[in-house]
Amino acid sequence: METFLTLLFSGLSTAALYYLLAAGLSLSFGLLRVLNFAHGAVFVWGGYTGMFVYQLTHSLALAVLAGTLLGGALGWVLERTLLRPAYGNIVVQVLTTLGAFYVLSEAIKIPFGPDQVGVGVPAFLHGAWMLRGVAVVKVNVLLVSVGLLVWGLGLVWLTRTRLGLIVRAGIDNPEMVMALGIPIRRVFTAVFAAGAALAALGGVLAGQYFGALSPDMGLQNMLNAFIVVVVGGLGSYNGTAVGALLVGLIGAFASYYLPSQIVGAVNVLIMALVLIFRPEGLFGEKEVVV
């Protein structure tokens, strides 16, 4: 029982991390039909920024703020320079965001070096609470709370605000929204920047979670986030959350019961099964072919 609960908590916190990364990917795919391959690099930039600011100020709040803002700014620049000239051309967008991934992943090595670096973690996040033999790691609590918070705020934003309504309508039918004279382009930029900001926030938290960062952790995490998105259904808000839970939890239990090499394969296996039996994802709508 204790093992089960411990694994459950650890799975939930990975799920939260995946969720932060996947939410932006899913949203920008749903609305912009863009698969952003620079996402993982933004995640890493967020992580390093957070680490750097924490070293300077010893304030986690400032670190989170700085990392998130930087991510948003990167997203804004990427959307303006790379995506905007090429809406509708998936191949070009995939390729240019991939190029940006290259550039950003390499550029982060100039100030911080190519190797793994340790990340400062504030004292109040050290260690774990023991609740009846179950270890509740403090950092995990932080991760899960932030994940829940972001999910909840996002839900309110999508259902209760004007911009959120436009975004949802845009996901259903972009032509219609454009025909209504809504400046959808600006909405695109905002959504894309928000998604990048979430990825960067995920990076800051990942630094706290792992206690270390390396320039190449973007790729692996981006792959997992992508798997989450595919499992949940591209463009489906709650689908992404469920996908993150599923992948996070299965991963946690798999890593306990299976040899570690296989764990990496488990995620891909989940994705393959979903793609074979329900290619639109668990919660995705079937796209109409014409």
């Binding site: 998936i90 595919v230 591209l234 393959a272 793609l275 796209e287």
Partner: peptide
Amino acid sequence: KAGYFAMV
């Protein structure tokens, strides 16, 4: 779809 396959 196109971008998916790249990830897969």
